[in-house]
Design a protein around this nucleic acid. Structure first.
Length: 350
DNA sequence: GAAATTTGACCATT
DNA sequence: AATGGTCAAATTTC
């Protein structure tokens, strides 16, 4: 129907993101020789990468309905070492691919959800143990010993699953080799942060994994929550070291019934932050607001070590069911924007 | 007392 | 049958 409009939006956004990336790169270049604090430069870098991610996502997403590919460390057997290259073995590749091959099962909602993995190192020297406080409230619903893994895997779902039909889940697996490393696999995007809610996201599950709790964190979250609600986004001021700027996270592509949402509909519904014309998903904004100390970089295939006092995101692999921007080739040869470009899921109540 | 976690049972997939 | 993922009753925590 309005494919023209949607296409326009996608195209516009694509161009916009590329331009942004370029601008920020220029700014970064300017700051390189100056006395700009490293935090600010990190932010710029983050913005740049984020822009390119978005752009690539747009390109990659198109016309990939039948294609499925997953990227990331295999979940069953944790990798012997921290993956630094984001290029999975062909075994991984195939395994993941198979995972998502069957698309026809409306009842199996979670099969087609976007999935991505982060590896997070926790610095146990600091008393602060909230490496991946992603701003969401998770509830543990299971724990399982995994074959060949020293540590059990924990399963979390969004606290608001029932209240808001939010089907986001995550799994936390402690690394065999380096117990300070957690591999966190996210599945599905949050649909729970409706504007009405401004949900307070208290503790992060990873803390529970480590059993070192600290009382500061909650306060911090509260503070940040306030900031979040007041600060719609003041991102153009990159000297603001209090916040990391909104960054790209992963789009939700479909709701539980596998309905796709064109971007334009989201915009009309004001689901997108004013900061970016596009793709500022819930996770994006949340994780930014609540990750003042960690520069979390969810990146496609790239490896970004944002080393900070508390923790370090060692690597992050992204994938979605249909067209992950894998950590491999970015073949952008055939660009064909899909009118139904699916990017995010608005809250989807029945 | 409510909410979150734990944990064994159950289910789905391979 | 083995394994991973989820459920849900029991238990713990707030």
């Amino acid at each position: 129907m309005e494919s023209g409009l949607t296409l326009t939006w996608e195209y516009k956004t694509l161009v916009d993101e590329l331009i942004q990336g370029m601008e920020k790169a220029n700014q970064l270049r300017f700051h390189l020789g100056s006395t700009t604090p490293s935090e600010a430069r990190d932010l710029l870098l983050q913005r740049i990468l984020s822009s390119y991610e978005k752009a690539l996502m747009i390109l990659k997403w198109s016309g990939k309905e039948g294609e499925a590919r997953m990227v990331g460390p295999s979940s069953g057997a944790p990798e012997p070492s921290i993956s630094v290259d984001g290029s999975p073995t062909s075994e991984d590749f195939n395994k993941r691919f198979n995972d998502n091959h069957h698309e026809h099962t409306p009842t199996k909602k979670r099969k087609n959800q976007p999935t991505w993995t982060e590896q997070v190192r926790v610095n146990s020297n600091s008393g602060f143990e909230g490496p991946t406080d992603d701003g969401y409230s998770w509830r543990k619903y299971g724990q399982k010993d995994i074959l060949g893994a020293k540590y059990p895997r924990s399963y979390y779902r969004c606290t608001y699953r029932l209240l808001r039909s939010c089907w986001a889940t995550k799994q936390v697996q402690r690394s065999d080799d380096d117990p300070s490393v957690f591999e966190i696999t996210y599945k599905g995007s949050h649909t729970c942060n409706h504007p009405v809610s401004a949900v307070p996201p208290p503790p992060s599950p990873e803390k529970q994994e480590l059993k070192h709790n600290n009382s500061h964190n909650h306060q911090l979250n509260q503070t940040l929550l306030d900031l979040k609600s007041n600060l719609r986004v003041v991102t153009e001021n990159l000297d603001n070291k209090e916040m990391t700027p909104p960054q790209f996270s992963f789009p939700t592509t479909y709701d539980e019934e596998n309905h796709y949402f064109p971007i334009s509909s989201l915009i009309e519904e004001n689901q997108l932050s004013p900061y970016s014309p596009l793709l500022l998903s819930q996770e994006t904004s949340e994780s930014n607001y609540f990750s003042p100390v960690n520069y979390q970089m969810k990146s496609f295939g790239g490896v970004y070590n944002f080393q900070h006092s508390e923790c370090e995101i060692i690597s992050a692999h992204a994938s979605t069911t249909n067209s992950p921007i894998g950590g491999m080739e970015f073949s952008v040869d055939h660009v064909e924007l899909d009118p139904n470009f699916p990017f995010n899921t608005p809250e989807f109540f029945t």
